[in-house]
């Protein structure tokens, strides 16, 4: 299958693309089946990953092992390299690319997901070791049409610039709401210091988090 941009007569914005989002897996078919959706299709339906490439399709990776991951409430059975991290599995096999790789060593926080409700660095988790855990990614928090209050607050407060660290920031911020963090800005700053924003949107990130906390 051709890349979408070659297939379409006109290039799409991400804004347009999201409304007809296709989830292409490397294995192909499984993802393509869900592709399509008309322009007006509800985004929530498409923000789900495909029900995963069936193990046979991904067997293109020699030596792959079967792994079952529970992500955003869905169970995915996939074949991955035995060394694959949760981060790479989300991005490369499940095409849940909202979770970002920034350093691959637990030094930036871009890959933050929730593991059984707690925020962790998904780059430091072997997929094979987390088959019984509930994983929540940014895709499981909200959608462009139905933003989580924290996502809406980030939009309102301009809590980003380039947006690359934003998924991790929001996953940390959502988790923070249930953590014992002091009421003041300094406490929020410390609690969010595991998420580096090289654009330096820290003041607005803190404002977004505080806005949601004050709402609660």
């Amino acid at each position: 299958m051709a890349p979408i941009d070659e297939k379409d007569p006109q290039p799409l914005t991400s804004l347009e693309r999201i409304s007809r989002r296709v989830f292409l897996t490397r294995a192909g078919a499984a993802g393509v089946a869900t592709a399509t959706a008309a322009v007006a299709a509800p985004l929530s339906a498409q923000a789900q990953a495909p029900t995963a490439a069936a193990p046979t399709e991904a067997a293109a990776v020699p030596g792959a092992v079967p792994v079952t991951l529970k992500v955003n409430g869905s169970t995915h059975r996939v074949m991955v390299d035995p060394r694959a991290t949760v981060l790479d599995t989300l991005r490369e096999t499940l095409s849940l690319t909202g979770t970002k790789k920034g350093c691959d060593h637990g030094q930036c926080g871009a890959c933050t997901v929730h593991l059984n409700g707690r925020r962790v660095n998904s780059c430091l988790l072997f997929a094979t070791m987390h088959q019984n855990d509930e994983i929540t990614t940014i895709e499981g928090i909200g959608t462009p049409e139905k933003l989580h209050p924290m996502q809406a607050a980030f939009v309102q407060e301009d809590g980003y610039q380039c947006g690359y660290c934003t998924s991790g920031q929001i996953m940390s911020a959502v988790a923070l709401l249930k953590e014992p963090v002091g009421a003041d800005d300094a406490s929020v700053r410390e609690a969010l210091s595991g998420n580096i924003c090289r654009c330096g949107a820290y003041p607005n990130i803190v404002a977004a988090v505080q806005a949601v906390r004050h709402m609660a």
Partner: peptide, 9 residues
């Protein structure tokens, strides 16, 4: 030490 994410693990 570290960060909340790392301390959670």
């Amino acid at each position: 030490g570290a960060t909340v994410q790392l301390r959670n693990l």
